[in-house]
Design a protein around this nucleic acid. Structure first.
Lengths: 213, 213
DNA sequence: ACCTGAACACCGTTCAAGT
DNA sequence: ACCTGAACACCGTTCAAGT
């Protein structure tokens, strides 16, 4: 907690991330954030045009935490490491993580993993168009996983819960028998294993983008 | 616009969807929604416990719009049709669509496409566990695509924009040459074609879950 | 250039009161 | 059981004023 230090963008963004980690998104108000920085809410507006800009800066901090793999390990391993690192970062900051879906990497530090990934794909023989395609598919899967996992999508999914068993209306089992049958598997799934499965499917499928040898 | 009709959950949810479609998420306040229904904001609380419950109901309306394919067309075609229908629904309701990432299908109408999908997978030889795996991977890709496409993720991506060309700091091209090279491909991409590409990759990869013949 | 505190224009929701 | 209007406890942000 920098009390005497002069206010700046980084200090504000780091304090915002600390608030998110400790108290969640609802606690992140301009007034509360200012309080944590021992200043007034309006002082923050000397450094950011509005609250959304603060959230964008937090997203950049998160994206900068994603590790850029070293060169020379092959495009598959590079993609795997980046995807796993991204997932680890989101699990480390569950309240802040949804922000990376709204704000793509912009700062050099946040773009480091993108540069490493693109470079690895280009070196492996993917042309720029195929590299962009692969990146988009991986981003979509990564952001979707984030929502499913952090949003507890399947925990809230009725198909993942035991039938209600009410007497005065048809049970899920009678009306939607296959939902009833498969549902328990959704609830029992291991997030890490499921993530790796989808990742494997994608990486295997991306090989089709390489020029035929 | 039902003026005289008695207030009920469906009428409120449909009015909320209409507000979202016409004016966007920021216009969806309890006061404004009540105004559209010619009632008071507090009257809505006789039908929903809070605003989040209204949003959940809107999500169920959207999910019910996803078409359940007929049986007998094979699991690949079933998956393709459901995924395409889901994307079409999100493009039809761009302001409401993000809600389906927060609220999974719950009503029988909203679960219809899930039942049809599960049934098709089970009939093709996927066991319940593999069916759940396949569903999760498809949901993650679908929700991720929604965010990328509706959130204009790559339009905001600096890698997708021309270098700023400022003189007093290293350009993106010098610091992140591969981001600079691949970026324009991200901006130029055709959303429909990109979606179909990722969908093909996933469906091809899911075949590995079938028991070996 | 940076900071402050009051004020504005809203929110979702609670409450007391009606029919 | 359903609806109303006032009020409460907040928001993000504008503004006028300070250093």
């Amino acid at each position: 907690m920098p009390r005497k230090a002069r206010l700046n963008e980084r200090a504000i963004a780091e304090a915002a991330l600390a608030v998110l980690d400790a108290e969640g998104i609802e606690a992140l108000t301009m007034r509360h954030l200012a309080e944590k920085l021992s200043t007034s809410a309006m002082a923050l507006y000397n450094h950011f045009p509005d609250k959304d800009a603060v959230l964008e800066a937090v997203a950049q901090l998160l994206l900068a935490e994603i590790e850029a793999p070293p060169p020379g390990i092959g495009w598959q391993e590079t993609a795997r490491r980046i995807m796993r690192s991204a997932r680890t970062v989101t699990l480390r900051h569950p309240h802040a993580a949804p922000l990376i879906a709204r704000f793509p990497p912009r700062t050099p530090d946040a773009l480091a993993f993108v540069e490493a990934g693109f470079r690895s794909f280009r070196a492996a023989g993917f042309d720029p168009h195929s590299t962009a395609r692969a990146y988009r598919a991986l981003v979509a899967y990564s952001l979707g996983t984030l929502e499913v996992e952090l949003g507890a999508y399947f925990a809230a999914h009725p198909a993942a819960q035991a039938p209600a068993g009410s007497l005065d209306q048809p049970s899920v089992g009678r009306l939607l028998p296959t939902v009833d049958e498969v549902g328990p598997e959704l609830a029992a799934s291991d997030p890490q294993a499921e993530f790796e499965f989808g990742l494997n499917v994608l990486i295997t499928g991306l090989e089709a983008l390489l020029p035929h040898r």
